[in-house]
Design a protein around this nucleic acid. Structure first.
Lengths: 214, 214, 214, 214
DNA sequence: AATGAATGAGGCTTCATTCAT
DNA sequence: AATGAATGAAGCCTCATTCAT
């Protein structure tokens, strides 16, 4: 119906997301406290004052970054789980694959480390993240595990706790990359890491043919 | 006449560890950058200046915390590994048990999250930690895995990467406790978490009797 | 419509020189180490933070004072020397006259005493001053002396050392004024001082008509 | 009559001068403000607290250093002048030689720079030094010059001002050595410096045989 | 007389936030 | 809408001085 907005207008509307992108990359690189708003503004190509036209303060900027970053991927994974009908371990692999593609291989990969690092200093933010990302992600993995246990594909174990154990190496892979990896001589290979994790899991979760569970 | 050192002297000798204890609790509570040395001093019941009689600066204080608290546990684990002659998985369990008792159940449990959160902004501290804790810890787990693979107890896998996968849930357990756990309704049970992790590992690492590796 | 820059803009452009002026007067009054940046800012009518918008730190502020105030005078003197074609002693007098007008009779007169007082504790500043002021000043006087010796106007002497001897009374005049002069009852007359110095020099440097050097 | 004091007693009596010696060397090396009392005490082999048993505070220590350092040499020079009967320039050379031996070649050589550097911040000290050292030194040189002028050995010039001009290079030699000399590549030769100064003076002060003064 | 542990004021520097233009 | 100059609170670290032993 209407013509496309003029370049100028589009620029203006793009501002917030340009700022969010700049903020994400700096928050992820330096953490929340150590990121200077002046640097965020500079990376987005605007001045420090402009930033305050779009975000009330540093906290609000941080929240906006999280909000935009990860929730859509959780929703995608919920859809994948809803339409899956194969075996449960395959579902785990599908969920991981999508997560890896949409988060692990993008700038959002830095968010888990960011949240872990700042949760205590920003409890309100942590709550927001927990409700919208973590609890939904755990529910997803939890229902896959529960289905597998009920079908006899997996051993019986405490589901909630197993979820944490299963997720942990995936989170650590990202957290490591944005923290101590700078000290490491050799680059580790995330593909191999994930494959080994899933290999161990496949065999570790499987219900033994006959006797002798632990 | 009295065999006891003077109160003054006794105080002087106790100071460093009082300061280290105060520093540990604040570092773990607020992170490295956000901890004020004045608060550390106050918690130890001394003034700002006194702290500098014992530690050259904030970095040195932090390194001392690690030096006194964590490195000895690594050394203990190295001794445990050196004298171990049983099967490799048992060694992994012994190492975990000692780590859990000396680190996981003490205030030092907060250090991994601290390091993850601050590594990028304090590369020298990160290096120190990497050299003295991480690389030694990985070597320890790595040699246990390698021994198990060579003896046929474990499947053959890339050792370095498997080390990371094996360690990750243990680190995440601690990291979680000092970050997002505040948002969690139910307290999770670390004993069960570790048991499930080790169960999955025991079965996941084991070399199948006959064929069918991945 | 109006051709004048806005007041704000005008202010911004004037700031650096206002700050340099304030810094010069305080450095000269109290020395480098004892001058508080907050006082410099206050004297320029701004806050502490503003100073850092224009100068990276205290060292940079000091260097800027030298850069703006003294180095140009050295450059002028180099130009004077380059275009001079008369006798060498006249050149010495021209150099002195310009130095006296631009440095000796301004607030910059306090810099030599400042440098002498602080050189050991701020070796980087001392180096900067040595490279940019002292060595160029000495080269200037040295080449005038050398020319005079080669033309037979002056006796032959070690040039480098003679430079130091020739310059010393001029520096001492300024150093004295910013140090012990407060204790002196009668104000001494710098014009007479300089005239006597040059009188002694004119006759002292001159090559005797016939024999009898020392 | 009495036996020599015991070593222990002598040690105690030697304390103040050991402290003064240590203070001199540090004040001369770093200046007043930058000298740490802890370093003074350490160099004298005592503890920080001990220093306060002998000197009320840092200022008092500084004053004591100056008091002990130079006045005796001035007195010696006054005696030399009193008994001198040769030509006036020879007297100037004798005074210089004694000064050079007793001050210029000892640790006291740093005092002129010290006084110059701190005079403004310690006016009371500056007065003390002016009365006891500078004014007496100037009187000494002044009377030698005046005698030479009256005898026809020297040209007629304003005595007070000429004194300053004559002394300046000697003071600058010492001041330089304790300030900017660190930046200088080649060590300058003080013997040559003083010889050139005296050469220039000898010829510069001398009354010309016939006409043509300036 | 001697010690040395303890203090706390003070200076440089950073940066989130404000606001006049 | 956008700018960017200006602010001032806050933290690390030093060191003269005190005082219990």
């Amino acid at each position: 119906m209407s013509a496309l907005p003029t370049p100028r207008k589009r620029r203006k509307e793009a501002r917030p997301s340009e700022l969010l992108e700049a903020a994400l990359s700096l928050f992820v690189e330096k953490g929340f406290a150590a990121t200077r708003l002046e640097d965020v503004a500079a990376r987005a190509g605007v001045s420090k004052g402009t930033l305050y036209l779009y975000f009330e303060n540093k906290d609000a900027l941080f929240k906006a970054v999280i909000q935009e970053g990860i929730i859509p991927v959780i929703a995608e994974n919920e859809a994948i789980a809803a339409r899956h009908s194969g075996c449960s371990f395959d579902l785990l692999e599908l969920l991981l694959e999508n997560w890896w593609t949409k988060i692990g291989q993008t700038a959002f990969a830095g968010i888990p480390k960011l949240m872990v690092a700042e949760a205590r200093n920003f409890p309100e933010l942590a709550s927001f993240y927990y409700e919208n990302v973590i609890s939904r992600g755990r529910a997803l993995v939890g229902s896959a595990l529960r289905r597998g246990m009920e079908s006899g594909e997996f051993r019986s174990m405490d589901v909630e706790t197993t979820v944490d154990v299963v997720i942990a190496p995936i989170l650590m892979l990202l957290i490591w990359r944005y923290s101590m990896s700078c000290c490491q001589g050799s680059e580790s290979d995330p593909q191999m890491y994930l494959r080994i994790h899933m290999d161990l899991l496949r065999q570790g979760l499987r219900k033994p043919e006959k006797e002798s569970q632990v």
